[in-house]
Computed example of a mutant assay.
Amino acid sequence: MRPYATAQLIGDRSHQCDATATATGPNGTRAFVLLDGIGSSDEVHDWTRTAARRLARTAAYHADAETGLRAQYDRYAADPDRQGPWARQPDACAVVAVASPRWLTVAWCGDARAYLLVGGRLIRLTQDHNLRRVYPPNDIHGGGNRNIVTSCLGNYETDQQVKDRYGHPAIETTTRMLENSRLLLASDGAYEPLEDAGLDLSGYLVGDVGETARAFVDTAVATARAVTDPYADNATVLIADLRTTN
């Protein structure tokens, strides 16, 4: 039985601009990637698929999520066509997780998320790069616009430039010892409708990975249309069972 699965639905957008990819590196290291393309066009659709594969291969080769994401982030940032505030090239929120024999490393830019289900407890591993994080809700206002991201793959700004503007670096990371668990990578179109409706995401992560992935995006799109918003975004998940070798 395959230990991972992906599923996606286009929702009500004109194009499916999310993409996933996996790759295997030295010593059985496995990289899992999810990209949430910004905008809806043929160009973004094609770019996210190529970028996801490149990121997965690079992260698997280096056996580290941060090294892989930084290599690809810097590669795109160096493109002269991406320089300056008026440049417009395809970009995407990105999250990558790398499971090596001992460690799980996660790196991200944007608001695609990574979660870990351990012993029935769901742990969120990432923090969103969007204006809702920069301006949290309070008693006076409802917070910043969560649909405006503050970092993404394809951006040209450095860690320090992003941190000076928004209070967080362009790329953030986390590392955990690898343990028997279930990994979830999700685009905002997958997690937001369930979260907005007050549903427990862990309840949608039990069972066969393929059936679970399909049910997750089905529920996300149906919930977005019926409960939280009449508009459903692209919804994409990658679910993987992680096992220690001990």
Rank of each mutant, 00 (worst) to 15 (best):
T212N: 00
S202G: 15
P85Q: 14
T29N: 04
D196T: 08
R176M: 15
A63R: 09
G210Q: 12
A51W: 02
V44G: 01
R182M: 14
D79K: 02
P137N: 13
A5I: 14
N138D: 15
S41A: 01
G207W: 03
Q161H: 10
A197S: 12
W86A: 08
N27F: 12
G154F: 00
T212G: 02
T126H: 11
R165T: 11
L242K: 08
N234Y: 02
L104R: 05
P26Q: 06
D159G: 01
N147P: 12
C17F: 01
N27T: 12
T58M: 08
A186Q: 10
L35T: 02
I10E: 05
Q16E: 03
M1D: 15
V237E: 04
Q83M: 06
Y231M: 06
W86P: 03
N180S: 15
V118G: 06
N145M: 14
N147F: 09
A99R: 06
Y115C: 08
C17T: 12
G189T: 12
L69S: 09
V227N: 06
Y4V: 04
V106G: 03
A190Q: 01
I38Q: 05
A232N: 08
G203Q: 14
T174C: 11
A213M: 14
G143R: 07
G68V: 10
S187I: 00
E172T: 06
L205D: 03
A226K: 13
H129E: 03
Q8R: 14
V96M: 12
A232M: 10
L201N: 07
V96E: 13
D128Q: 05
D188S: 13
G120K: 06
A94C: 02
A240M: 10
E43G: 03
A56V: 13
D111R: 00
P193E: 12
T244D: 05
W103H: 13
G120F: 09
T228G: 14
Y156M: 10
Y115L: 10
L205H: 07
C17L: 11
P3K: 11
A186D: 12
